[in-house]
Structure formats: C-alpha cells, structure tokens
Write a protein that binds this DNA or RNA. Structure first.
Lengths: 199, 199
DNA sequence: GGAACCAGCCTAATATCTCTAGGCGGACAG
DNA sequence: CTGTCCGCCTAGAGATATTAGGCTGGTTCC
C-alpha cells in the first residue's frame, strides 16, 4: 500500500491512559459490548496491532475501563457524602450512583465486569473503596456487625438492581414515572435501615 | 470422520426448541457470553450454517434462551407462592428467585438481556408474567397504587441486584456468609413493605 | 412406482475481531 | 554521527457471524 505514500507518520501518541479514557467514552456512546480493540484502533486511526504495545489484550482494556468507572463512582459517592449524614447521606449517595449510571452507561456496565482480585488489583481496590463509602452511610443508622455488612449488601443490591433493571427496560411496562419509584425506593431503604430486623 | 466418506448422513434432527434447550444447558455450563452459534453447532456435530435454518441469528438464539429462562423463573415463582401469603410468600419467592439463578447461571444471565417488546414478544410476555407474580406478593401488605408499583420495582431490584452482585463476586471481600446476609435482606424488605413510607 | 418437492444439512465465501511475530524509521543519547 | 529503542506497521492465523447456493433423502401425489 501506498500508504506511506506520504512517508512521515505522525505517531498517534498512544498511551494506556489515553486509550482507557477513549475506550470509556466509546463505551458510553456505543455500549460496553461493542467496545472492541478494533473499534478503538479505528478511533485513533491506527492498526489493531498497535494497541497491543499498551494493552495486554481485550480483557485488559475492559478491566481498565472498569477501574476507571469504579474510581469515578467512588469519587462521586465521596463528594455526595461530604457533610451529610443519615437519611440525607443515603439519598445523596443513591442519586449520585444512579446519575453516574445514567450519564455513563458504558462505564457503568464495565463496573459490573467480574473482577479477579489477584490480577485486577486496581479495579478491585476501587471497588473496595466504594464499599467502604457505602458502609460509612450506615454510621448514621447505628448498626453493629454483622448487621452492618448485611445492610451494605442490601443497599448496594437495591441500588444496583434498580439501575440495572431500569436500563434493561424492565420498568417500561408501567406508566409510573421511574424517578418517582426511585424516590420511594430510597425511602423504603431508609425505613428498612431505621427498623433493621434483629436476629 | 471423514464426513462424506460414508455417504449417509443421519440428520441431526435440529429444531428451534432442541437448539434452545441445548443452548440453555451450554450457557449454564460455560457462561452465557460463551454461548455462540459455533459452539452450539459443534455440540450437535453440524456446521454453523445449518443452524440458520432454525434461528434467525445469534441474537435470536439468545433471546430464545432468555424467554425460556423467564418462563421457568415465572413457573418457579408461581409454585413458591402457591398457598402462601405475606412474609411467607415473600421469603419463598425470594429464595426461588435466588435458587434459580444459582442453579442456572447461564439462563439467569440470559434473562437480563435487553429485550425489545416489539420483536421479542415471547420473552417480554414471560417477563410481564413474572412481574405480575411479584405484584401478587404485595397483596398481603395491602399497598395501594402507586405504592404497589413502586414496591414491585424495589422488590425486583433488590433481589436481582443481590443475585447479580453475588455472582459477580461483589461480596467476596468480606467473610460474612452470603446466605445470612440474604436472609437479613429479605427481612429488611419485609420490614420496608410493612412500614411503607407514605407520600 | 416414479416424478417433483422440500426440508435439512453442507460447501464456499465474506466480514469482523483477537492476537502474535517480526520489521522499519525517526527521536534521542552519547 | 551513530546506535538503540520505542512506537507503529505489515503479515498472517484462528474464531465467530452470516449469506448464498447446492445436494439428497424422504414424503407426497398421481
């Protein structure tokens, strides 16, 4: 090919970081399933093979996007929790979570990737940090272990489940506004935390 | 075998139903992401192209598995609810849901596929049926609309979220037994339903 | 019984994606 | 200036998804 026709190639200036960020944007645009090495290479105008100097493989790319997403999510959660407590903190955390998922569907999907704590350390750390923040919400509800852990799991489950079902279209069958149900769901979680069942 | 070698080919006897069932089993074994036309064709000892007489395309196969899963899930939910009410019904429903996901991870993953109500009618119907059953649990809690719809959404979110995070390994960081947290989570949902917030 | 049909599986071929091996040229160090 | 090395490239193999078209055995119908 005369590609070279014009000789000088201006180096695309790829780095793992730039690739990861672009991948996150791409995932948000076209969906995480369609985040592919080939698509990313096209985006930068280079050959697929060129990405392998910066990324181990396709899964590596996805894990990096997951780590980015989990970090951003934890940052937002931290910001939402700053200066708030109790029910206020809960609501702010919940909204931050859902808003992030809405704004960054591709990143959010990446965050759901199954991670191997052994190898995907960065992502796993970010996930742990997010869990710590979730736990900090419960300080206002005075739950002792192991109820606290149970509550963290329930909280995360409800929020993740809601967002996930909403995105999958699971709530489209009914005209009730999804935002309203969300507000009631957060209220219900607050209720459950305040009356946490003994035993 | 040298294929043609022996002339007579004993027809594999493929039908959409047999393919769907085999695909569901395959998905449970190797994971829904690895459910592929090629793998399924291998399973039956036929060529990939042969499947296209029975299935429109790869997505069609996946949607069929989703429909199967949603139907089975609704069947189990119905069985769990039979003869029970209130908190009893809630717990039975919850366990049926989680048990199904544990026994059939591939099918369960399929059930989370984004469905288009226009084209994926069978699957969408099964999903609706499942939603109706969820709603029937709430009879014991005497919630009027729109609280009822909000509660259905919260219920489903919590259960799905829990199962989904459990599978993704999200609860592995802490030694607290996952079954125990599950029981407390179901209790908490019961509590929330009994004290459903007004407004 | 035989011709026509058709359902069911096959071969062939294309496109896309992942990933490995090895090459080449420009930038930078000395 | 001269090497070295980094960063991207060419080549190519192996998988999957999908389409087009062909062969054949079983069924149908006179």
């Amino acid at each position: 090919m005369h590609p070279g026709a014009s000789s000088s190639r201006p180096r695309a200036g790829l780095t793992a970081e730039r690739l990861t960020l672009a991948a996150a944007e791409l995932a948000d645009e076209v969906g995480f399933e369609k985040l592919t090495i080939a698509a990313l290479a096209r985006h930068f105008g280079v050959r697929d093979a060129s990405l392998y100097s910066h990324l181990r493989n396709a899964r590596d790319l996805r894990v990096r996007v997951a780590a980015l997403a989990l970090t951003e999510l934890a940052d937002r959660a931290a910001a939402a929790l700053a200066g708030r407590a109790g029910r206020d903190a809960l609501a702010a955390f919940a909204d931050a979570y859902r808003d992030y998922a809405k704004q960054h569907p591709g990143r959010y999907a990446a965050a759901q990737l199954e991670l191997d704590p052994e190898t995907d350390t960065v992502a796993a750390d970010a996930a742990r940090r997010h869990a710590e923040l979730t736990r900090s919400i419960l300080r206002g509800y005075r739950l002792a272990e192991p109820a606290q852990t149970d509550a963290v799991r329930m909280l995360h489950s409800t929020f993740h489940g809601y967002v996930s079902l909403e995105r999958a279209g699971g709530f489209r069958h009914h005209p009730r506004p999804v935002d309203d149900s969300w507000a009631r769901t957060v209220d219900a979680v607050d209720t459950a935390l305040r009356h946490w069942p003994a035993q």
